[in-house]
Nucleic acid binder design. Sequence first.
DNA 1: ATGCCAGGTAACACCTGA
Length: 257
Amino acid sequence: MKIATFNVNSIKARLPNFLAWLKEFAPDVALLQEIKCVDDAFPRLEIEDAGYNVATHGQKTYNGVAILSKSPIEDVVRGLPGDGSDEQARYMEATVFGKVRVAAIYLPNGNPLGTEKFSYKLAWMDRLRARIAASLPQGEIAIWGGDYNVIPTDSDVWDARAMKDDALMQPESRARFRSIQHLGLTDAFRALHPEPHRYSFWDYQAGAWQKDHGMLIDYLMLSPQAADRLMASGIDKGPRGKEKASDHTPVWCEIRD
DNA sequence: ATGCCAGGTAACACCTGA
């Protein structure tokens, strides 16, 4: 079973590229972020025609996540426990293929430092950790995939010094990312590819893609039961090189049935 | 030190992103 996470940076702006990628890469499950539309505006019919079931958790203009699967999508949960009055659509879970629990995550960016945006990011990470901690004892084959908006180590960015004041690099962000991993999750990409300077995001500006000035911020985090089935993983750089590309490219893994 | 580019909304400028 191939599972991919892809921050599309607007599903409407990306639709032709996205449909081409779906056909070519043919994931069994896709976890999407930044769909940037309400549920009713999601191009459901086009994606269903490509052979996928669709579940969305959208909002106007910003954020928004979705889960696509070749199987039925069951037991959908939208939002994180503890979100309260938080209206930002950044998290959803569902069961696919009758047995795999997947979550699509769009973690807050948190810039600039010293603002409520950064404290919101850290609080959101605490809620995510609590949700994962509560889920793991159920022993499911589970995957929390998405745009974590954290650069875990200096080797995950083209120039750590240039980014030192960025929310993605702060010790508080990194500590929370590690704390989530230490619950017992396996990073599907890094488990098989320890080499430094492999990226999933390149800014649109300053020729970052052409110069390979990127960062690794998209992750598929596996429960122990999923990690036991991990067969392969990778970063599909193809979509980033296309015209009208997202600034992210898909990260994928394959788990044994 | 700042903007670079891109998307959305709404209006032909501004916000957000990472």
